[in-house]
Design a protein around this nucleic acid. Sequence first.
DNA 1: AATTAAATTAAACGCATGTTTAAATCATGC
DNA 2: GCATGATTTAAACATGCGTTTAATTTAATT
Lengths: 208, 208
Amino acid sequence: MAARITTQQKILNAAEALFARDGFEQTSLRQITHEAGVNLASVNYHFGSKKALIQAVIARYLSVFMPALEEQLNEAEAQKDLKTQALFERFKLPLAKLTQINKRGPDTFLRLLGFAYSEIQGHLRKYTQQEYGNVLQHLLQLLKRTNPHLDEQQMFWRLHFVLGSVVFAQVSGQALIEIAQAEFNQQIGAQDVIDQLIPFVSGGLENS
Amino acid sequence: MAARITTQQKILNAAEALFARDGFEQTSLRQITHEAGVNLASVNYHFGSKKALIQAVIARYLSVFMPALEEQLNEAEAQKDLKTQALFERFKLPLAKLTQINKRGPDTFLRLLGFAYSEIQGHLRKYTQQEYGNVLQHLLQLLKRTNPHLDEQQMFWRLHFVLGSVVFAQVSGQALIEIAQAEFNQQIGAQDVIDQLIPFVSGGLENS
DNA sequence: AATTAAATTAAACGCATGTTTAAATCATGC
DNA sequence: GCATGATTTAAACATGCGTTTAATTTAATT
């Protein structure tokens, strides 16, 4: 059991690609298993259910992303004169690290996140909160530091608006990228979208 | 054919409520027809297909909202010293007008819009562009006026981020409102969310 | 090599969906 | 009041889904 790709991995790889492209509900197990070249029943054999497969796909990314983000937040913590935008820039490295899972890992992860938030409402939120709640708390604390003029309620809403922008940018991302490319005659990648996004969410969050 | 509610209207009313609550794909024709107290087959008889029903539901709102928005934009056009935030505030009145369709019309419309954008990817965008493209062009032109420091590409992306925030706020809105109410011990409505949203999108769009 | 456990396979199950059919009912104009 | 067209109805259709079953094949252990 060394370099050969197991059935489990084949399923995970095919599933994450299709989930990221079409969403969870729009992707059937028959599509996934066909793409992976494995039997339909093997999903339920190895993962138990489709829901569990979705969770496994997301968990694989979170397990890389979250620790890297935590490290970045610790560095930000020590930083003097921390600015909101600089804080958001800290997301770029953890995101880039996801290439170790997949060449298009960063794109994939953000799109998965987008679908997860818009499709399975409370489920992922609860899981993330439970597994990585401390990291998110840390982020909130730092944002309060860079934005002492916002009260609890403003911060609550704006954080969710930020999340909404990110999620939307990714879910509608591919379509928008294609429109943008046609309109501006240049190659555009997910990284460019992030670079456009950061000043937007920074400005939105900070605004008095 | 005077004051009595026709089958078509019964279907539209039931459909828009369920669509707004659960999304288009999550709502079955059987749910809709049961709620409306009409026969299952009457949807296909009166509208042709589920897709056409969705379009009819959205079109009913757009036909009220868009002309009202156009009027607001014309007023803004004449305004001296137009600010981005003031421009976004112009959305409130057209939105409020939707109560003439339904008491909870504004909420319903925004949630429908949210689901429309996240579920049926290109379809609605094309329809809106075709039917009300001139209004949206007008909005874009005014935004360029209030933000001359942004180039075409920045404006393109930020406009879509704004849209994303709005859409997300509404789709995740009810869940978030409940969390917020529990956390801050006060009654919160869709209008409050809009009030929180406007400074966010204004700040995000303007940021240099 | 024989035994046992793990993994894979083809097939079927049960269910829910949107849509279509064809008969029954209703309303309308002559 | 009857005939005609519009509407409503109950039932079935076709399809796709996640899941389960039971038999077969593969791999590991003794």
